[in-house]
Design a protein around this nucleic acid. Structure first.
Length: 289
DNA sequence: AGTAGCACCTGATTGC
DNA sequence: TGCAATCAGGTGCTAC
């Protein structure tokens, strides 16, 4: 479900409501929620007593920076939510993990269990400092080394990403979704960026001019900044911020979910197909192959 | 080596 | 109405 704008909304909420957050008790309610740890019991043992001093993000990954130099990685998968309550709460369906500090509770809710929490060590050069967004210390969890800078990161080298993208014979949409080239783009914002830049989603990346691929990444960043300003995109109750509230960007989408409707730029009718195994909506008239 | 395909889950919706 | 098939915002492993 959540792509970079939604993930950033959650990170900002955690920064506001759970920083610092001392984990007095931790409870794992579903074994898959910490499947990367040796065991839920081990996860609880290692996290209990630690203090989360801040929250960082790269692409679709969030991590809490712990006082022992490690990170608490949070991935929302397709349906994850992180909710922070300052007072006692009623049990929620699909609760996977509970962290408590006094009366405050941080709850991980995840219907489809593709999301997870995981502990990892932080590494990296403090001189490599992305501006803001909680990455200020320049460190990255080890297991996220393969994740490229995201399209909201001012230090993302768009020209280099476009050069890397251009080496691929895959459909451009598959490359936009590839988190090792530039991160944060998921199925919704890939379709939005492709529509905004007027590029056919199935066009092989190597057949697209580098400047147009750069334009795609710029458009992805722009649409995500607009989405962020509206609290992200929500189609249902599966995406909410840390207070349980939805985002309002769905009404502003130009491509995703508009199959059969008329294109907002030309007279074409939006079409839905499958590209790289994902549902893809585009305008066959102004996004030519 | 790069890429396609599928598995991992639950739940809502669609179609027979 | 009932039930099976299909689809959903992501990632990562396996096998060509």
């Amino acid at each position: 479900m959540p792509e970079l704008p939604e993930v950033e909304v959650v990170r900002a909420g955690l920064e506001r409501l759970a920083s610092p957050f001392r984990v007095e008790t931790a409870q794992v309610c579903h074994p898959r929620a910490t499947r990367h740890s040796s065991s839920p019991a081990e996860f609880v043992r290692e996290l209990t007593g630690r203090t989360i001093e801040g929250w960082a993000v790269r692409g679709k990954y969030i991590w809490g920076i712990l006082d022992d130099g490690r990170a608490l990685i949070v991935h929302l998968g397709m349906s994850g939510q992180v909710l922070v309550d300052t007072h006692a709460v009623l049990p929620r369906r699909h609760t996977r993990i509970l962290l408590r500090q006094g009366d405050a509770t941080l709850t991980f809710v995840d219907q489809r269990t593709f999301g997870y929490f995981r502990l990892d060590t932080l590494e990296g050069d403090a001189a490599n400092v992305p501006a803001g967004r909680g990455q200020a210390d320049g460190r990255l969890p080890q297991v996220l080394r393969h994740v490229a800078r995201d399209v909201l990161d001012p230090n993302l080298d768009i020209a280099a990403a476009a050069r890397a993208a251009k080496l691929s014979a895959r459909p451009i949409k598959a490359v936009l979704l590839d988190q090792t080239v530039a991160s944060g783009i998921g199925n919704i914002y890939a379709d939005e960026a492709l529509w905004a830049a007027g590029v056919h989603p199935a066009k092989p990346a190597r057949r697209i001019a580098a400047w147009r691929i750069e334009e795609l990444y710029r458009q992805a960043g722009m649409v995500m900044r607009r989405a962020l300003a509206e609290g992200g995109t929500s189609f249902d109750t599966l995406y909410v911020n840390t207070a349980g509230e939805p985002g309002y960007f769905a009404r502003s989408l130009d491509a995703y979910g508009r199959a059969g409707e008329s294109c907002r730029r030309c007279t074409g009718i939006m079409e839905k197909t499958t590209v790289a195994g994902r549902g893809t909506t585009f305008c066959p008239r102004c996004q030519r192959k």
